Amino acid sequence: MPAGCCMRKPKMCGSLLTCEVNKLHENNDYLLEVKNLKKYFKVGANQILKAVDDVSFSIKEGETLGLVGESGCGKSTTGKTIARLYAPTGGKVIFEGKNAHKLTGQEAREFSKKVQMIFQDPYASLDPRMTVKDIIGEGIDIHNLYKGKEKLQRIYELLNLVGLNKEHADRYPHEFSGGQRQRIGIARALAVEPTFIVCDEPISALDASVQAQIVNLLISLQHKLRLTYLFIAHNLIMVKHLSDRVAVMYLGNIVELADSSELYDNPLHPYTKALISAIPIADPKLERSRQRLLVEGDVSNPINPPPGCLFKSRCKFAKSVCGQIKPPLKEISSNHFISCYLY
């Protein structure tokens, strides 16, 4: 029984799931708290796609939380809902103690200044008709941060901060490589002086060598500017390198959440184990000798999800209870949460 939940308020705790969600938010030092977040999309006449279904996690100031999982599992939808690009179907996004989706007027403007996004596609996310100077300066104008020469000087500073130079300010996006475009996207996000950035797969469209450069840049910027990240990615090696904690997502649900070193050294959920086993090893002998865990079976339909655990159709350890009730996300060791009846 989690301390601070059922033991102190036995009449107010409705379920084990409620207790475990409260456990995730016991610390008051969190900059961002996502509580039972849901985002559903209507598809067709009477069908509902449950892209994000009852997701909860928290992020401390200055921390990086990695969010990993297969394509279509709801990672990007989670990030966009946090940044208020989508309105949630249910649940709350609490930023600096306030419900982000209830903000209006000046508070909403302040939120849009403090919370920014770096998008996945460096080609589609930059307006081809605007110069780099205009792209970076747009947010500065909206929030009235700098004018005239001060604004231009600020743009030059941002370009230098991300590894470009002021000569790039008057060029257009098509004149840059993918890595350079992503640096421009990072400079645009930094232009309004945010404290929290949703990094929505910012390296997936880049070459491997450029990926490492962008990740190292993000780490450097975090230290210099005291930033907090939600880092969404497929590349598990980069996520391990960048993240303090990692959440594993499957079909709109978080199935495991732990400190980065703990998750990679001691994965517990069958899905997490399969993901970790797929990470390539540099030593060819070790790579050939190790046994990979293959995930077989059909993926459950997120439009008409069956009851119980959504991973059960692909899990060789599935029990009868797995097909009846969805397992709650509960803490099975210090700061290690898992949604699985095996534990």
Rank of each mutant, 00 (worst) to 15 (best):
G308Y: 02
D53G: 06
I155R: 01
N22E: 11
N46A: 14
G69H: 00
G252W: 00
S76Y: 14
K316C: 08
I254H: 02
G74R: 13
V52Q: 06
L85G: 01
L268V: 10
G72S: 10
D54K: 04
L16P: 00
S334K: 02
A318M: 05
I214G: 05
K102Y: 06
R288G: 07
R292L: 14
G14R: 09
D170M: 05
Q180R: 02
P202H: 15
E63D: 14
T81G: 14
L161S: 09
V162T: 04
D170A: 02
E110N: 11
V239C: 04
I281A: 05
R109C: 13
P305C: 11
I303Y: 04
N335A: 13
V299L: 11
V299M: 09
D200R: 08
K11Q: 15
T131P: 02
V162D: 04
L310Y: 11
S333E: 15
I135R: 06
A278D: 05
F231Y: 15
V215D: 02
R109H: 13
S300P: 12
K240A: 03
R245T: 10
I325E: 15
L257D: 05
Q211R: 15
I214E: 12
L37K: 05
V321E: 14
G91T: 12
K151Y: 06
C309G: 06
V115A: 09
A187T: 03
I338M: 07
Q213A: 13
A187Y: 01
E96D: 10
A233L: 05
G308A: 11
E167A: 13
K319G: 04
G44V: 02
C199D: 06
C13K: 13
C309E: 09
R109L: 15
V115T: 06
Y156Q: 02
M12G: 12
Q213L: 13
N144Y: 09
N46T: 12
L16D: 12
G69S: 07
N216W: 12
G79I: 10
F337C: 09
C309L: 07
S320Y: 09
L206I: 02
L24G: 02
A169S: 05
